[in-house]
Every structure is written in C-alpha cells, then in structure tokens.
C-alpha cells in the first residue's frame, strides 16, 4: 500500500503531530517504504494461528483492593510545565 500526502496528514492528525508541509511528501515516501517492507507478511499463511498475546504465556495477576498510593500531589505535579495550586493548567479546552 502506498501512502499519500493525505494519509500522512491523517496519521499526523491522529497522532497529534504537527508536520511541516514541505516534509509531507518525503514522509509519504518513507512511510510507503516501511509499509512495503512489512507487507511481506502477506505471503505468510497465518490461517488458524492465534495471535500471540503474551510471550510469557501467563495470565493477569491481580492485586488486593487496598489504597496504597496517592495523597502525594507533589510527586504527581512536580514536573508540571504549568500548574495552578494543585491543578495542571493547559490552554483553554473548547468543548
């Protein structure tokens, strides 16, 4: 599958990445090359093969319902680029 400029724009939008206009064609080429490479897999017969969910062959372990974290806003907010009291602050969200 060949990736177009539009597909690059769509993927960039999905991934929230600003891509400069002049880079879009180059990226389309690069992404097409990668996809072309991975599409070799089409030749492999995977009928009746289950997808691998875990290389360790294990299933989920659960924890007890105990409160043993939180109540440490400073540990959570220490690296905030912008904060107001104990809130993170971001540019206005328009709903």
């Amino acid at each position: 599958m060949s990736i177009t400029r539009e597909t690059v724009e769509q993927a960039a939008r999905l991934a929230r990445l600003t891509v400069a206009d002049e880079d879009k064609d180059r990226l389309a080429g690069e992404l097409s090359a990668i996809l072309g490479f991975v599409e070799q897999l089409d030749e492999i017969n995977t009928d009746n093969v289950e997808p691998l969910t875990s290389v360790v062959g294990a299933t989920a372990r659960m924890r007890k319902d105990e409160v043993n974290a939180g109540d440490y806003p400073e540990r959570v907010l220490a690296n905030a680029p912008d904060r107001v009291t104990d809130f993170y602050a971001v540019p206005k969200v328009v709903e």
Binding site: V38, L41, I44, T46, V49, P51, L52
Partner: peptide
Amino acid sequence: KARRVRTL
C-alpha cells in the same frame, strides 16, 4: 497479522 506471525 503480526501477532499471528509472532506465534509462528
């Protein structure tokens, strides 16, 4: 597909 290949 890739996960199935992983199984193989």
